[in-house]
Every structure is written in C-alpha cells, then in structure tokens.
Design a protein around this nucleic acid. Structure first.
Lengths: 189, 189
DNA sequence: AAATTTATTGACACTCCTGTCACATTGAAA
DNA sequence: TTTCAATGTGACAGGAGTGTCAATAAATTT
C-alpha cells in the first residue's frame, strides 16, 4: 500500500556507482545524485541517514554481486580453468577494485548504521580474499604458481592489472589476452 | 626587501603533497592546508588564484623532480641496468603515479593560469613516456623484452606495481625484489 | 627614525552542502 | 468515497569553503 516509488534500488545504485567513479568519495553529494535522478534531494533522507550510509549500502550490494560470481571459481577443477575464469570475471567488473578503495575512505565515527555496514563490508572483503586464497593454494600445490612469490603479491598483480590504462584503446580481447600473458610469464622474452 | 616569508615553497609543496595523498583532490581545501601549516588561509591567495593553480603548480614541481631522475636512465648502457635503475627510482617515489591521477581530476575551465599549468604538465607527462619508450625499444632490440606485448602494457605493469598494497607489510627490500621477479617472469613457475 | 615594500591576517559576503520538518501527493484498503 | 500509510518536496537553519580587501606587521632602504 501507499504511493509508488519514483525509482528502484537498482536505479539508485546504478547512478550512485556512476557518480562515485566520476567524482570520487569526497566529491559525491546528495545534490548531484538528486539532479542526476531528477528527484528531490530530501527524498534520499527517507532511505538513508547520510551519504556514508548510502555508499556503504551500495558497496555491500556491489560486493554481493561480485562474490556470487567469485564463488563459482570453486566449481572449476584445476588451476588453469580457475585462472581463466578469474580473469574473465575481474575484467567483466573492472571497477570493483576502484570501488573498494573508495569505500575505504568512508569514515564512520559514531555507532550508526554506516559503521555496521562497513563492518559487514569488511567481512565480505575477507571472504573474497579467502576465496582467492584457495585459488592460490591450489596453484602452488599443482606447482603451477611460483612458490617464491608472496600470495598477496600474486593477487595484487591480478587485481591491479585491470587498472592499467589502455591509452591506445587496443581491442579489449587482445588487451586482456596480453595481460594474461604478462601476468603469467612476465615482460621478458 | 620587505617582510620575510613564513614558509618556503618546499614546505608548501611538502604539506600539499601529504594532504593530497591523504584526502584526494576533491577533499583538499585551503582551510586544511592553512591549519596544517599554521598560517592564515588568506595568505595562499597572494600566491595562487585558487586551489587548481596551487595543485597544478605543485604537480609541475613534483614531475620535474621525477623527470630529472628519469632522464638519467639514458646514461645506462644496456637494458638490464636501465631496468634496475628504473625500478629503483619508481619505488623511491611510489606516489608519482597516484599524484598524476589526482592531477587528471583538475578541471580548468577558463583561460587561467591553471589551464596553462595543466598543458605544461601534459607536456612533461609525454616527455616521461618518450623517455620510457626508449627504454622499451632498447629492451625489444636487445631481445630481452617479449615483443608480443604492447609497449603501453609493459609500462603500465611497471607503474601499477608500485600501487599494489603491501597488506602484510613484508620488508620493503623483499617486496620490491618479488615485484621485479613477477614483472620479469610472471606468477607461473 | 621615517618611508617604503612585501607578507600576513581577520572579517565579510557569497555559494554550496547538510539534515530536518511540515505539508503535498499518490495509490490501495476500508 | 473516504481513509491512511508510504512517498516526495520546498523551505529553513546551520556549517564549511571561497575569494576579497582594508588593516596590520616586519624587513629594508633612505
């Protein structure tokens, strides 16, 4: 019962994401979002106490979508297939890493909802890492990964690689293929 | 003649850098800088029209320091030595990449000094790339670099690697060594 | 010591964002 | 048709940053 909403949660999060990637956490304001969505700014306060709460809630939503896909990595039997699949989903959501860094900037001082959201998000992030840890462990067990290299560095390389600017706009397929090649065997011939 | 300045340019840029890395471009304000430096906010307006002008000027200063070091790469005769030297200076100034990205956010609409500064900075950035291009070309000529990999990706890998978060705080020397190893030969064994 | 020059500052007016609230709107239930 | 609960909005007060300027402070020159 009651009035119909002017926008769905999906729409809200879609615009939030675009704005966040455009202007960053500090630059993000309810005013901009309201203008973008053609809605009164006051409306948001019916759903969120403040921008921290909106952004942390958005990030949980975003991370959830990513985790669902990431979990499927376990269904692949060997390291090679897991690696292929992992690169695919990472390059399908190149912005996840950037969004994680933005969320790190959220300061939640008091005992509010944003604080709880941040804690939940932290749990999800660790969940993500543990999922990836299994991947690394398998790779080292199968003797496919260089055991000398710290696990955290292997993951770091994989995740950072999506952030490399493709200045010359090489075709996506070729670009991703090259990145896989370099991550696998390095830049030396 | 006249009164003595309360702070040097070096001090100003030092604090600007710290603040920028802490709060990002959008979060940076003259108020914060003034408080940090224990100076009146109004003082800055004697030297800069606005924050865009300060930040672009700072970036030129920063890039200059980096370019001076980078130019020396040409004094090394072969690829191996150039590679070693390059990694050293990049890890000595791990923040240069981050600062470049921050500067990209500066919007200089009108025909002001910030606009000119941005253009000058862009020149320096291209200068940087051309310097690195020589390094790549030498590497491919000496048949040390994988000729299949796009040049821009090789540089991207090297520069992005400094941004990989060292979550477990592995000792710097070991960390850099591992990164060199992965850049060179990849994560596979 | 007075004049001159340069640096610094507090205060003011302006703009933009925030959080709130009473009031308006809408759609479904009674 | 009336009622009512959920949704949406304009307006207001408060806070923070901006850019400016007249006044003040400190060095140097005369």
């Amino acid at each position: 019962m009651g009035r119909e909403r002017k926008f769905s949660n999906d729409e809200l999060f879609k615009h939030t994401k675009e704005l966040l990637l455009l202007v960053g956490y500090e630059g993000f304001t309810f005013s901009m979002l309201a203008e973008k969505m053609e809605v009164s700014r006051a409306t948001f306060y019916k759903y969120f106490e403040n921008k921290e709460e909106l952004i942390t809630e958005f990030m949980i939503h975003e991370m959830n979508e990513f985790l669902v896909k990431l979990k499927k990595v376990e269904t692949y039997a060997n390291f090679n297939e897991q690696f292929e699949y992992l690169m695919d989903i990472i390059f399908e959501r190149t912005e996840i890493q950037e969004l994680i860094e933005i969320t790190m900037q959220v300061q939640s001082n008091s005992n509010n909802k944003a604080r709880l959201n941040k804690e939940q998000f932290e749990d999800m992030r660790l969940n993500m890492y543990s999922c990836l840890q299994s991947f690394i462990t398998l790779g080292k067990k199968e003797d496919r990964l260089n055991a000398q290299v710290p696990d955290t560095l292997i993951l770091g390389f994989i995740f950072q690689s999506v952030a490399i600017p493709n200045h010359f706009n090489l075709p996506r397929k070729e670009w991703v293929q090259s990145i896989k090649e370099v991550i696998s065997n390095g830049i030396l011939s």
